[in-house]
């Protein structure tokens, strides 16, 4: 049974436990379970996008437009509910669908025109955040203050709790379960891995890889839409620049979670653990008295070091080679 758990996930779990112990020793308040559970609010958006960006990266693509889809869905919700007077839940549902449409556009362009995913989602990133700004511009709302005045029920979506467990934790777990079942228990999940390992051979074995690739972007767009709704509810207002700084943490969570950036290998459990690690790291550093603006240093280092380690056993070899740089003239085929 133990053998079935990937090694990297064990490493992540150990890191997480070590983190909780160390930060708790620095500031005992860190061990307060309520504070830990409530801190999920700060990274649940990052985590649920990261789950489905994991899908995208396993197929060998990349999706950097998630952050701007958050802003777009947030604005769409705000406009539909507050300016056009639609029922808030209908508005939220429509906004999630808009997120899915954005993902669909990304996916179709990537799968059928075979342009690099990075370029298309970069264009998408500019486009979707641009559309959000345009919508705000037309509605006449102030870009800075955004649209606020949501009903208490909607605010409760992210801020309430069920039997003492914050809603954000529940959303986290539910989305994790959905992603886990899709990726690891269904045929669809196997197809995603196959597409990432070798698209041509997947194509020859009768898998419609284009459809698979498109669907992963749709899922990623939908999850970004859900994250947008949660963030809007959590902060109680909708603004176009929500999620603008999410690009880095999302990719950090996916990559730290053990998913290969070149595709074909990875899993959502790792992503979930990694996003909790990053979230708790931020919380712990803040509680330890580190200013918020310095936390990027820690996450940046974490990203680089973890990827360097995941190079596997080659890491030691690589470090040794780095040390005697002069001997290596570069270009070893077996490197």
């Amino acid at each position: 049974m133990l053998k079935k758990i990937p090694k990297w996930n064990v490493v992540l779990l150990t890191t997480l436990l070590a983190e909780i112990i160390i930060f708790g020793l620095i500031n005992p308040r860190f061990w307060n379970i309520n504070i830990l559970l409530n801190s999920f609010n700060d990274f649940v958006g990052i985590a649920i996008i990261a789950f489905f960006v994991t899908f995208v990266i396993i197929t060998g693509g990349i999706d950097i437009s998630g952050g701007s889809i958050i802003g777009l869905t947030s604005v769409v919700t705000g406009l539909l509910a507050q300016v056009y007077g639609l029922n808030i839940w209908v508005a939220a549902l429509l906004a999630v669908l808009v997120g899915g449409l954005c993902g669909l556009l990304n996916g179709i362009l990537i799968a059928y025109s075979k342009v690099q995913a990075m370029v298309i989602t970069l264009g998408g990133m500019l486009l979707y955040s641009g559309i959000a700004l345009v919508l705000v511009g037309f509605s006449g709302a102030s870009t800075y203050e955004g649209i606020s005045g949501f009903s208490q029920e909607f605010i409760n979506l992210a801020n309430g709790n069920l039997l003492g467990i914050p809603h954000s934790v529940i959303v986290f777990v539910v989305m994790l379960l959905i992603a886990y079942v899709l990726l690891h228990w269904t045929r669809y999940g196997r197809y995603i891995y196959l597409t990432g390992i070798n698209q041509n051979s997947a194509e020859y074995s009768g898998i419609n890889t284009r459809k698979i690739i498109t669907s992963t972007y749709v899922l990623s767009g939908l999850s970004a839409g859900i994250a947008g709704i949660i963030l809007t509810s959590y902060l109680g207002s909708s603004r176009a620049d929500f999620g603008a700084e999410y690009l880095m943490p999302i990719l950090t969570a996916v990559v730290l979670g053990g998913t290969l950036i070149t595709g074909g290998k990875g899993g959502v459990v790792g992503t979930a653990l990694a996003s909790i690690i990053i979230g708790f790291l931020k919380l712990g550093l803040q509680m330890g008295g580190v200013q918020t603006q310095y936390i990027g240093l820690a996450t940046g280092m974490l990203l680089i070091i973890s990827v360097a380690f995941m190079g596997g056993q080659k890491f030691k070899l690589n470090v040794r080679r780095l040390l005697n740089l002069k001997k290596d003239r570069g270009g070893n085929l077996n490197a």
């Binding site: 990349i62 990075m118 880095m248 990719l251 950090t252 990559v255 950036i261 990027g296 240093l297 996450t299 940046g300 280092m301 990203l303 680089i304 990827v307």
Partner: peptide, 10 residues
């Protein structure tokens, strides 16, 4: 991509 993204933050 990862290397320079981390470096960006640092």
């Amino acid at each position: 991509f990862i290397m320079t993204l981390g470096m960006l933050e640092i």
